[in-house]
Write a protein that binds this DNA or RNA. Structure first.
Length: 554
RNA sequence: UGGUCCAUGGUGUAACGGUAGCACUACAGAUUUUGGUUCUGUCUGUUAAGGUUCGAAUCCUUAUGGACCAACCA
């Protein structure tokens, strides 16, 4: 028996609903507006909604909340579908609020006939004044008491295109002094002579969110309509409309949206970064968008695991991006192919090595017993990382230094005999001797070294472009800082370097996940070509040495 | 100064009136042909004050702090 995992508050509600017989199966929906790309915050909602119907009987619809033609585009629809699928979820039905426009129009007529909606000629400024403030009640619109017949006629004329944008709205007749501002005669329909991505020019009046979302839920028989906390005040209106219309009683439940530090998750802000060229696009590998994370090398598994671990609750939160990276490394460590790439090379000449060189074997993934091995080229001249040598090493440094020995990964132990420098004192070449009896796998030398270095054969190293990504912002909460959030962009979020890679990387394909040993996890970028390989750094390896140095310094 | 929602280590999340637990982070150690991985251990918490109760993180009251609400956005 596995340990009983505690339920989140939504699972508790659902289990109650199921055991009480209120429902025999549940229906949820993921309702994005196609006005931007999905981001990591949406992933949480996707995992929640789809996860619930994976765990309990029922299904989840994908429904586009496309009631505002001026901001919505087909490009976004396509990206959203791709992202949800990539995350590993399958929707029962692909639906659009715009498919319900005729039905929604009929609902509006129904409300007018009940005397619960009226056509208002007030301008948006006038309406704002009528509305009052959170502390002061509003006042009735002068058009509030039009007759049902007049309203019916006017609304039909609105639909027929007789009025320009902004001159009339349809409002619910509720209570202008209601403590909940949303209940003060909310606008239901507005006039927009705009081209809709699906309905084209069929309509010139469009329902507002409040008159579309709950109704769509109801039409689809959604049992649990899950949204974020800022919609809590909408629930009263959501319920009111369903009651007045006498339609299927869907219920709205709210949870707190997940905030992640060192980034922003607001479609408006992300759009700004794209439009103003701070990033190369919605799928820039530094973006917290699903498509950005995908290009960066994140796996769906790691994102799902992350969403699972942060859970669901109602309180304000700021999740540490370190947890996302932990989930990423955890998965990548299991699946990534190990490869050797030197970023900032310094040449090592093995003065006692004779002959043309040899092929050595090295494992593809020590975590995977079935991972197999591959041959790597070894010879008299190799590259190692400049950082892996120090002329005057501090204590606790167990890499290469004059007179010191290290192992070359899957090869031999070498000792540094001589340091060649140029006139500026810069190290240009290290002359070392190798220990022939120390060959990896058949070491009879009896020598024990603390350090093992990655290396690449100098003669046939492959030059590749490497894009080293770091967090997009310098501060944990850019939105919370003084001034514009863009003032806090990390100027070093991308650094392009040249890597000297082992030859096998020539065969890399887009789906491959690599660990460049002692460096980090990498994958091919979509910009890569066979002639010019480009790798993205997905995430670094944890760096224990950096920690030691930091502790020594302080 | 109206209404609504929320409050548990640095972070996220459990405990459903009965021993405050788990994960991440941090720290210490062991293992290691990646200073990675793995393993072991340690630190840190119920916003406050009252009340109910044999017993309160949990129920009640008040206070405090935070979030949301005055778009013809969603």
């Amino acid at each position: 028996m596995s340990e009983e995992k505690s339920l989140n508050f939504l699972e508790e509600i659902i289990e109650q609903d199921l055991s009480s017989g209120k429902y025999t199966r549940i229906v949820t929906r993921f309702p994005p507006e196609p006005n931007g790309y999905l981001h990591i915050g949406h992933a949480s909602s996707i995992c929640l909604n789809f996860g619930l119907t994976k765990k309990y009987p029922g299904y989840t619809n994908l429904r586009f909340d496309d009631t505002n033609p001026t901001t919505e585009e087909t490009e976004y629809v396509e990206s959203i579908k791709e992202d949800v699928q990539w995350l590993g979820f399958t929707w029962e039905n692909e639906l659009y609020a715009s498919d319900y426009f005729p039905q929604l129009y009929a609902f509006a007529i129904q409300l007018i006939k009940k005397g619960l909606a009226y056509v208002d000629d007030s301008s948006s400024e006038e309406m704002a004044v009528q509305k009052g403030t959170p502390t002061e009640p509003g006042v009735n619109s002068p058009f509030r008491d039009r007759t049902i017949e007049e309203n019916l006629q006017l609304f039909e004329d609105m639909k027929a295109g007789k009025y320009p944008d902004g001159t009339k709205t349809l409002r619910a007749k509720i209570d202008m002094s209601h403590p909940n501002m949303l209940m003060r005669d909310p606008v239901l329909y507005r006039i927009k002579h705009a081209h809709h991505h699906r309905t084209g020019d069929t309509w010139c009046i469009y329902p507002m969110y409040d008159f579309a979302h709950g109704q769509s839920d109801s039409i689809e028989n959604v049992t649990h309509s899950i949204c974020t906390m800022e919609f809590v005040p909408h629930r009263e209106l959501y319920d009111w409309l369903i009651t007045q219309l006498g339609i299927y009683p869907s219920h709205q439940y709210e949870f707190a949206r997940r905030n992640i530090n060192y980034t922003v998750t607001s479609k408006r802000k992300l759009l700004q970064l794209v439009n103003e060229g701070h990033v190369t696009g919605w799928n820039d590998p530094r973006m917290p968008t699903i498509s950005g994370l995908r290009r960066r090398g994140y796996t769906p598994e790691s994102i799902r695991e992350f969403c699972d671990r942060i859970g669901i609750a109602k309180r304000e939160n700021m999740v540490d991006v370190g947890l996302l990276e932990f989930c990423l490394r955890e998965h990548l460590n299991r699946i990534a192919l190990r490869r050797m790439v030197v970023f900032n090379p310094v040449k090592v000449v093995l003065t006692n090595y004779e002959g043309e060189g040899e092929w050595l074997d090295t494992e593809n993934n020590p975590e995977d017993p079935n991972g197999g091995t591959r041959p790597i080229r070894f010879s008299k001249e190799i590259w190692i990382e400049r950082d892996d040598f120090m002329d005057n090493p501090p204590k606790k440094y167990f890499r290469l230094s004059p007179g010191n020995m290290v192992r070359l990964k899957s090869a031999y132990i070498i000792r540094c005999d001589e340091v060649k420098k140029d006139e500026k004192g810069e190290v240009v070449e290290l002359h070392c001797t190798y220990i022939p009896e120390s060959k990896s796998g058949q070491d009879t030398s009896g020598i024990h070294v603390k350090g093992t270095l990655h290396w690449v054969n100098a003669a046939d190293a492959l030059q590749v472009e490497v894009r080293e990504y770091d967090r997009l912002f310098k501060v944990e909460d850019p939105t919370d800082e003084e001034g514009d959030f863009k003032d806090y962009l990390n100027p070093n979020s991308l650094q392009v370097v040249t890597g000297y890679a082992e030859r096998s990387l020539e065969q890399a394909v887009l789906q491959d996940r690599f660990q460049f040993i002692r460096k980090g996890y990498y994958c091919l970028d979509t910009d890569s070509t066979p002639e010019h390989l480009i790798f993205n750094r997905t995430v670094t390896l944890k760096d224990g040495w950096a920690k030691v140095q930091k502790n020594e310094a302080s």
